[in-house]
Write a protein that binds this DNA or RNA. Structure first.
Lengths: 121, 121
DNA sequence: TTATTATATGAATAAATGTTCAGATAATAA
DNA sequence: TTATTATCTGAACATTTATTCATATAATAA
């Protein structure tokens, strides 16, 4: 929640120049939220397992549900979210939808984060 | 929630080989959850703004609270989370704690995700 | 010591979220 | 048409979570 200007005591700002600079450099509000939504989508254990599973070959909803050990409904909800954020894409073959990673960025993001995780400690 | 084996109807698994392969390739459960926690931490708009603000220069808690327009307590809670995940680090100068990004990976992750966001649509 | 500044922490609360259940839609075959 | 398979969707529920408030800690100065 953003405080009204008049309620912001002026005696504790140590580096107003840095605050100003941070505001100037900041991402546009909308882009920041889209970016956060992207990370957030990747920040659920089951969704992350889905993405990792699709890294090598495409799989259908039924496969993915069985893989995670959850209902197909649950996977379908999650896949919709991942689709909306362009993290996965699908192709239809008759009644079956095959899902895959949307593009190379997705795998790269996971690998980079994994590298970070494995490096320190 | 994982279904007991005997409740898993065997008639809808289209590609058992792919499911098996996904299980073999899957990250260890603990690592998957750590990785998800990392993305999840980056998946909050305010925490992402914090990380982006620290991309260029270090800032103290008071600066960051003023920058976001939230209480110092709220920022402190968020910074603790980011610290625990090695996304930020700090250094003390007298009573003031200066925060910075923990290492180069953090900025790279954000840039890569931003690239993905700006490419498609 | 006491006072002040900067930050951290625990508890509580309101809001967000992942899953399930029940039912709907889409594609195909009979 | 009806039946079947694969997937999707809306509502509800239980859990998680971001913030606030009040208080505690750490560092410094008087």
């Amino acid at each position: 929640m953003i405080l009204p200007q008049h309620e912001q005591c002026s005696c504790r700002c140590i580096h107003q120049d840095r605050i100003d600079n941070a505001h100037e450099q900041a991402l546009a509000s909308k882009e920041n939220e889209q970016l956060a939504a992207l990370f957030k989508a990747m920040g659920d254990p089951n969704r992350l397992r889905l993405l990792w599973a699709l890294k090598d070959e495409e799989m259908c909803v039924c496969d993915l549900a069985r893989f995670l050990g959850v209902t197909e409904s649950a996977v379908s909800h999650q896949l919709r979210l991942l689709r909306q954020l362009h993290l996965v894409a699908n192709r239809r073959e008759g009644p079956v939808l095959y899902y895959r990673l949307d593009d190379a960025h997705v795998g790269e993001l996971i690998h980079l984060a994994l590298e970070h995780l494995r490096e320190d400690k």
